[in-house]
Design a protein around this nucleic acid. Structure first.
Length: 467
RNA sequence: GGCGGGGUAGCCAAGUGGUAAGGCAGGGCUCUGCAAAAGCCUCAUCCGUCGGUUCGAUUCCGACCCUCGCCUCCA
């Protein structure tokens, strides 16, 4: 079945086909974190989205080479390095580690390659030299190197592939910093920023003097170095469309003369409690904040994966609580299947897998995919209750679930094992009930509840469940 | 001002030129000593408003209202 994806370049849904003539290898680049702080829930939506794209490509049999850059040199980072009187690596290292921990907690597969901007300075310099040679970049009086939109357009290249740009109609000046005086034109952007005293020890020598890379150049340098001049997929948050991705295209195509990226995928932003996230509103959450409130990475992942990636999604604490309940419904069903199937191997039941795949093939229609999952849960529960499934049926259903879970990546909730003393209380309650000592039995029930455990009575016996 | 999204049940959210998936909440039931947990069933005569096209529109077209985002910090 064909995979259709919305390509920002064409503004339409197109059938995805990789550049690889064998139709197997896929190069995928996702703009990664700038490691100056913990990533927030909005950042995570984009990374979870990228993970879904990758997993679904793999599910469809593609061999994906997933590259995610780590931007570890940039204005904010330099400012904090100076303020905290530390070194660049000393500052970025811990945030990078935290980022990777969070990524794992959210069930994201680690990208195959995670290049750091600071480790690609030679490639960045080479790219800038190429742009100067080709006449689309220039050194300004202050020593910095800028990309010239006019020259680029002059050689027949198109600036504004991802969005309609009309520089005359833009509200120039509103957000343009007045200190960017050295550029020839307002739209030009920095490739190399000349060293200034505030940069401290953060600088590299180059043919254009000491300095550091501009904001967009590192992505062009790293993506083409690892995936080639032209590659299949480039993803990121929608805010990166302009100027970041537009500039990446200009730099890359300006240097290589070849098309840069075949498919551009952009994830929409998140609202938190109905508002744009901001620290002053108190709706600015990191994964760690949510974990401190008792939620797990998989619950957050589920919520981030609930809605279609191109729609603005309102992330709320109520929604997170709902996510927990909904996920428990799946877990309950899967746990019952496991119990019935034992270790029996089976061919995956195709019904769920087909419905799921059909949904995701249509520009990652995850809502329809979840619809298929929950219909399957209901159907399975019915069969489980009727005793019509059997061991082979359960094994087959389970195999189907595992297949699609490789794409959803929500795994299974960690089964909490109750401490021995609570287990002992459970046995005591069992005895009390047998003797019709309901007072004692209810006492024990309350006692366990106070400790966060709920007793699940069923015809098969009793079981402790963590609240 | 330019460009681009979106308005579907109490909340969240798919979708289609032929009469509305799914989740949460609510209601009913099963189970139970009573509960809880779990499961099953149920829950939109209707898809922002007004027109138009059509045998038929929530879905296509037009106008309008509301809302959100981007326009060089930003996932």
């Amino acid at each position: 079945m064909a995979l259709n994806l919305f390509n920002t370049v064409s503004r339409s849904v197109q059938t995805f086909a990789p550049l690889d003539p064998n139709g197997r290898n896929v190069g995928m680049y996702c703009c990664g974190p700038t490691v100056y702080d913990y990533a927030h829930i909005g950042n995570w939506r984009t990374f979870v989205f990228a993970d879904l794209v990758r997993r679904h490509l793999e599910f469809k049999g593609f061999q994906v080479n997933h590259v995610m850059n780590i931007t570890d040199v940039e204005d904010k980072i330099i400012k904090r390095v100076r303020e905290q009187k530390t070194t660049l690596r000393g500052f970025t290292g811990p945030y990078e580690t935290a980022f990777l921990e969070d990524l794992r907690a959210l069930g994201c597969q680690e990208p195959h390659q995670k290049p750091r901007a600071t480790e690609y300075i030679p490639q960045i310099i080479a790219l800038i030299e190429k742009l100067i040679t080709r006449g689309v970049a220039y050194r300004a009086p202050d020593g910095s190197v800028y990309f010239s939109i006019d020259k680029y357009r002059g050689c027949g290249c198109q600036y504004g592939q991802l969005l309609k740009l009309n520089f005359d109609e833009m509200r120039a000046g509103e957000r343009v910093k007045s200190d960017e005086y050295a550029k020839e034109s307002i739209a030009d952007f920095a490739l190399w920023k000349t060293r200034v005293p505030e940069d401290g020890e953060v600088f590299w020598p180059s043919p254009f003097g000491e300095g550091r890379p501009g904001w967009h150049i590192e992505c062009s340098a790293m993506s083409t170095a690892l995936l080639g001049n032209t590659f299949d997929l480039h993803l990121g948050g929608e805010d990166l469309i302009f100027p970041h991705h537009e500039d990446e295209i200009a730099q890359s195509e300006g240097a290589t003369g070849q098309p840069f990226v075949k498919f551009w995928l952009h994830g929409a932003h998140l609202l938190v409690e109905g508002k744009k996230m901001s620290k002053s509103l108190g709706n600015y959450f990191t994964l760690r904040d949510l974990q401190a409130k008792g939620y797990t990475g998989r619950e957050v992942r589920y919520l981030l994966l609930k809605a279609h990636y191109r729609e603005t999604f309102n992330f709320t604490m109520d929604g997170l609580a709902e996510a927990k309940t909904a996920l428990a419904r799946i877990d309950e069903c899967v746990a019952k299947l496991r119990e019935l199937a034992g270790g029996t191997a089976a061919v995956p039941d195709v019904e769920l897998v087909t419905a799921f795949q059909t949904a995701l093939d249509e520009d990652l229609n995850i809502s329809a995919a979840w619809g298929a999952v929950f219909e399957w849960v209901r159907k399975t529960n019915r069969a489980l209750a009727d005793n019509t499934l059997g061991v082979a049926g359960a094994a087959s259903a389970l195999a189907g679930w595992e297949k699609i879970n490789a794409v959803l990546g929500i795994g299974l909730a960690a089964e909490a094992e109750a401490p021995a003393e609570l287990q002992a209380l459970l046995v005591e309650r069992q005895l009390a009930r047998k003797n019709k000592d309901f007072k004692r039995s209810d006492e024990i029930r309350d006692q366990l509840k106070a400790q966060g455990w709920v007793i699940e009575d069923s015809p098969k016996g009793q079981r402790l469940k963590k609240v």
